[in-house]
Write a protein that binds this DNA or RNA. Structure first.
Lengths: 237, 237
DNA sequence: CCCTGTGAACCACTTCACAGCC
DNA sequence: GGCTGTGAAGTGGTTCACAGGG
């Protein structure tokens, strides 16, 4: 069985992954509403802003330790707080970036890194000419210092923005340093031991998926290049 | 939030969105295998490389106009061709980037943009000092020329890498120019008319989701430490 | 009434298991 | 024997619709 240990792990009732994935959207909308001075939202309105159905929004929120007011709606600030806590953002999370190249620098300067409950602690790189400089308000350190800096500053997450060949090595160093969350931008799959979370973000994949949806209808025609398979299976749809 | 809306104009895709999302992973693995000289793969081996089950891989491939050989496996090159066609990458797709800032430049230089079946045709920006330069091998043009360039060069997809406040405006210009696929990196939701596909890629959301999974168990409420590698490719940047 | 919260129905993707072909 | 392709069963997220509180 491949990935045998996948859902077993930490036993208890976990929140479905799709629900977790929607939470940041709710949080952003709530922050905007709160900033605009709106005190309450109905599930209908909030759902509309997030392009989801109101039923699913209500069910998602039922996973939170929070209740709305029937006949009224949700308190924007209080719900935002609840969602933040759910995401583990009720305290500031320390993050670092591996790779001070163009991508790493762009990410470092991206406001979200600093204003969404995160604190960029360091950027790691191997190139001597960038070590010692500052990127996105954080010092660029030699990658050898990752373990020490991670332990010292309590870094919990690492954004991997290095070339593909270096990604696995960086990931392993990060794991060894006690980091348990990786956001991998390198176009390579990294493997990590159980207990470490990796989210892989791949521009090429995204573009390719988009390409599928923007492709004109092409019924499989005679232009087919493979002639070796004698059975031209007809697909059901 | 990820794109779930398909229903392309011609009623083509009845292929489930999760299947489409996994195809790029198969393609990359197949390309690697083919480059390594391996002629056939079993579903077991290919699935292992993509961290999915072999059953799901076989079912995914059943959506293609392609057949493997029982007792042998799949021809790596031929299957790669079939997957490429499925993704609409059997012909080169023209793309452009809006925003020649750090992020836009990083994306433009990203090899995947050029070596995965895409051709970067132009980069658009408003800043006079960058217009006229070259980024990632493509000319930087004033954003006003988007419609003309899109029509002239047959641009089908646009990567939005502009500041959030400009994203919706850019999206509307793109739609008006006949572009039907948008990859939005701006931390804002853009709304488009039906028939246009948007994939939203949000670093802040990714980090927040990761924060949830790396958060220590919480006293009140539901702790969820869900390890499942749920959707290996969904968001990017 | 209005809007939330949720049991129950629904649907869609996943997984199993094996028939069919190599 | 090995491996694909697929009906059938299983699972889990979504949607419905209404009970229940303000």
């Amino acid at each position: 069985m491949s990935t045998a240990s996948q859902s077993g792990g930490t036993g208890l009732t976990s929140v479905p992954a799709p629900v977790v994935a929607r939470m940041p959207g709710y949080l952003q909308a709530l922050d905007e509403l709160a900033a605009a001075g709106q005190q309450t939202v109905s599930s209908e309105e909030l759902a509309g802003r997030c392009s989801v159905g109101s039923a699913i929004l209500r069910r998602d929120l039922s996973h939170l330790d929070f209740a709305g007011r029937r006949g009224v709606g949700y308190d924007t600030v209080a719900l935002g707080t609840a969602v933040r806590r759910f995401l583990g953002l009720d305290r500031t999370r320390r993050i670092a970036i591996a790779g001070a190249g163009r991508l790493g620098s762009a990410i470092a300067d991206y406001a979200a890194v600093r204003f969404s409950g995160f604190e960029l602690t360091a950027v790691f790189d191997t190139a001597p000419e960038v070590v010692g400089t500052t990127v996105g308000g954080a010092p660029v350190l030699p990658i050898e210092q990752l373990p020490a800096a991670a332990a010292e500053d309590g870094i919990e997450m690492l954004i991997i923005a290095v070339p593909a060949p270096a990604a696995q090595t960086v990931a392993e160093a990060a794991v060894a340093a006690g980091i348990t969350g990786l956001l991998n931008f390198a176009p390579t799959m990294v493997t990590v031991p159980e207990g470490v979370h990796v989210r892989h973000v791949d521009l090429a994949s995204e573009l390719r998926v988009l390409a599928h949806y923007t492709a004109p209808a092409q019924p499989a025609g005679i232009d087919s290049t493979d002639l070796r398979n004698t059975r031209p299976r007809e697909h059901a749809l």
